Simulated assay, not measured.
Amino acid sequence: MIPTQIAVLQFAPEKGEVQSNLDRVGEMLDGLNADLVVLPELFASGYFFNSTEQAHNLSESATDGPTVSRMCEWAAATGATIVGGLPERDGDLFYNSAVVVTPRGWLGTYRKTHLFYEETLHFTPGDTGFQVWTVTDRNNRSYRLGAMVCFDWFFPESARALALKGADVIAHPSNLVLAHCPRSMPIRALENHVFTATANRTGRESNGRETLEFIGQSLICSPSAETLASASGQEEGVFTVRIDPRQARQRQINPYNDLHVDRRPELYAS
């Protein structure tokens, strides 16, 4: 069996420099051999906006804006499904979104459910709910891909919702500043028996009043809580691993226990 190759990209974008950030990512993806590539949250716009006006001015369509157009070009050139974050404009509403594109074009958009810190000033909480799409690798084998964005990881229900909807792999574009996520993602993968691919950014960014430092440490985790690939705090690069997404579908822990069958949701309500 030829494995499916998944990758996370880590770099330090410059706030507001959309074109140069897109060019930088394009250079990093040039010649890449991968079936799935996960890019950071808000990877072309930058993250820590000086004002709501700046955030909205940098927002664009999540189906045919400049960032999605470039993502579609990269997907066509590499044969990969690509997931990346952008500030989305939809009429008079603005969202922190993750877009999924394939070599055939735009596939779907997920709008971040759990906004973090000053995101709550600039964006509307997502209204799409957690979604799972069927995609194929370059050998035409299908698997189920879910998406969540950065702070969604803090809420166990996010990854659980995606797993219950059949996700084999969870793409996780991120701009992490809290230290806990790299320790937690192996557990999210284990408790849901899925692969996770967290793509974080590096560097610092200021809104003119405060500076955030991003922790890097992008990582790919297995359903057995193994860290299959990882980056350091400040290095830039594309980090890849070969997997069989179908391994996520065997959720039987032993002859008597199944991770999904044994759930008792009637007792979980608050």
Rank of each mutant, 00 (worst) to 15 (best):
M1E: 02
A7Q: 02
A7T: 12
V8G: 06
Q10G: 03
Q10K: 01
A12H: 06
P13A: 01
D23K: 04
V25D: 01
V25P: 00
G26N: 03
L32W: 03
E53K: 12
Q54A: 05
T67W: 02
V68S: 12
S69C: 12
M71L: 15
M71E: 11
C72S: 13
E73P: 04
T78Y: 09
D90P: 00
S97R: 09
S97M: 13
S97A: 15
T102N: 11
T102M: 07
G105T: 09
E119G: 04
T128P: 05
V132N: 02
V135K: 04
Y143C: 01
M148F: 04
D152T: 05
E157G: 02
A161R: 06
L164K: 08
A167W: 03
A167K: 07
L176C: 04
A179W: 02
S184M: 13
A189N: 09
L190E: 11
E191G: 00
E191S: 08
E191C: 09
H193Q: 12
A197M: 00
A197Y: 03
T202Y: 01
G203W: 03
R204K: 14
R204Y: 12
G208L: 09
R209H: 07
R209D: 12
Q217G: 08
S222C: 07
E226H: 13
L228I: 06
S230R: 09
S232F: 12
T240S: 14
V241L: 06
V241E: 06
I243F: 01
R246V: 10
R249V: 03
R249T: 12
R251S: 06
D262Y: 09
S270R: 14
